[in-house]
Structure formats: C-alpha cells, structure tokens
C-alpha cells in the first residue's frame, strides 16, 4: 500500500503540492487526473523517491521514504517500476540492453534467463524480435511499449505511469490502455496512472483522484467522479471552459 501524507513541495518558492493526502491500495489501478502543471508528475516522482518533500511523507508498504538512506531507497525502488512521460529510453543502448539494464546491474538472473525474459516481455507488449534495434529507430508508441517492458523487467509490485498516452494517436493510445489493463490482470501489480486523458482514465482506472491547486479534491470510482456535482471536476471531465462558472464558485469548490 502507498500512503501519501500531507505532502508539500515548492520549486523556487512556488508551491506545487500543498498538502496531498492519498491512499493507494494493493491491486488497485488508481488514476490521478488534473490539469497540466497541477503537480501530477511531481507527485509521481515523490512516490518513487526521485524528489524529496518539503513537508509530509510517502509511505510504501510501511516504509517512510523521506528519511531513507540511499541504499534503503534503492531497495524500495526495486519494488516500483516507472514509465516516464517521454519514455526516457537510453539512446546509446539497444532495446534489449534498455530492458535488461536493471536486472543485469543488480545481477538478478543469469544472462540466458535475462534474454529469455526480455523476449517474453517484448512479446507481451506486442513488439517481438526488436531486441537489436535502437530507440532512435522506434516510433513514439513503440518507445512507450519498450519503456513499459523495462519498467516490468524487475517484477515490480507497483507500476507508475506518467502520462502514458500523451502524444500518441487515439488508436495507439487505446492499445496502451489495453496493455495496462492486461498487465494489471496478468501480473497482479498495483498501478498509479497520472493522466489528463479522460478516455484513458475511465478505461484503466478502478479508482480516480483529482488534483487541483496542489491538493486532492476528490477520490472515488469512475462512476462517482462522473456523478460528482463539484464544478471543477465537471469542468475538467467534460473538457470545456464553462462560461457560467465564476471565479468565486470555483474558489468555493476548491
């Protein structure tokens, strides 16, 4: 279980997270929605310990991350896989080396087993036989799939997705959504998906939270969020700037 407790984070004096409280239960596919720049990716980077909070904490399976030493932090990170927004594949390495880097560095499996597992994961993400290709030879969708295979290689208990469908055409985006659902079912992982793509959010999420002005203003099922009468949520999920919502109404809703 991941618990986020009163998380605060500022950059150069600009507050981004202003007291986020959230619980992500085992086996859940939890989608965090919110406008661009509202701190979703910053929140995700706190969950994997890439950023340290100014105040508050993230607790993963009972371990508070904010005061962990680096070695202990790495132990926690081995339980978490992350798909970065722009895939963040290592340009100088082949697809196989990208996927296998983590397990090779941590000497988790013998090399023959590593190669077998890379082939298996590439098959799973729908890209069999591309081990020898370089990231520069792949399309955006293929890169996301390879990055997903890399995130899954260390057999994580949690997978964090940072805008998994951003920049993809609707068909490719949908195939990534299907892939995320399949991975949740097949591997039994807990997923945290950060997105502003509502079609993706409804499809993959069994729980949703909305981040607004650095705070979680709603947590519930996709049905509950659709039924919410909060004007900010309705404005966001409809994707329209309602002219009838005055600033005072929005302020009250926050």
């Amino acid at each position: 279980m991941i618990e986020i407790i009163d998380l605060h984070k500022s950059f150069n004096g600009n507050p981004v997270l202003r007291g986020v409280d959230l619980q992500i239960h085992k086996g859940e596919a939890h989608v965090i929605i919110g406008r661009s720049g509202c701190g979703k990716s910053v929140l995700l980077k706190h969950i994997i310990g890439l950023l340290r909070p100014d105040k508050g904490d993230v607790v993963v399976d009972g371990i508070a991350l904010s005061r962990l030493k680096r070695r202990d932090m790495y132990r926690v990170r081995k339980k978490i896989g992350m798909l970065f927004q722009n895939s963040a594949l290592f340009d100088s390495m082949t697809v196989e080396d990208n996927i296998a880097l983590g397990v090779r560095e941590h000497r988790m499996f013998p090399d023959a087993e590593v190669r077998r597992r890379v082939a298996e994961l590439l098959e799973m993400v729908g890209l069999p036989g591309i081990q020898r290709m370089f990231p520069s030879e792949l399309s955006g969708g293929m890169r996301k799939r390879v990055a997903l295979a890399r995130a899954l290689m260390m057999e994580p208990e949690y997978v964090l997705y940072d805008e998994p469908t951003t920049g993809l055409d609707p068909i490719m985006a949908d195939s990534i959504n299907e892939l995320m659902i399949r991975i949740n079912e097949a591997m039994g992982v807990t997923s945290v998906v950060v997105t502003h793509d509502m079609a993706s959010a409804y499809k993959v999420g069994d729980k949703m939270s909305m981040l607004e002005e650095g705070k979680v203003i709603f947590t519930g099922t996709p049905e509950e969020i659709q039924a919410s009468d909060n004007p900010i949520i309705q404005q966001f999920i409809r994707g329209s700037q309602s002219p009838d919502l005055s600033e005072s109404v929005l302020q009250k809703a926050r």
Partner: peptide
C-alpha cells in the same frame, strides 16, 4: 545534460542504479 533533460538520469535512478556510479 541530454540524459538529464530527457529524464534518462531519473530512469536510471528508478531502476535503483546510482548515476554517479554508472
């Protein structure tokens, strides 16, 4: 620098690999 701005350094960290060592 390119690795930093394209989040490849963060990706190394996420795989529990120290960028200073690697």
């Amino acid at each position: 620098g390119t690795m930093k701005v394209t989040e490849q350094i963060d990706a190394l960290e996420s795989l529990a690999i120290s960028p200073v060592r690697y």
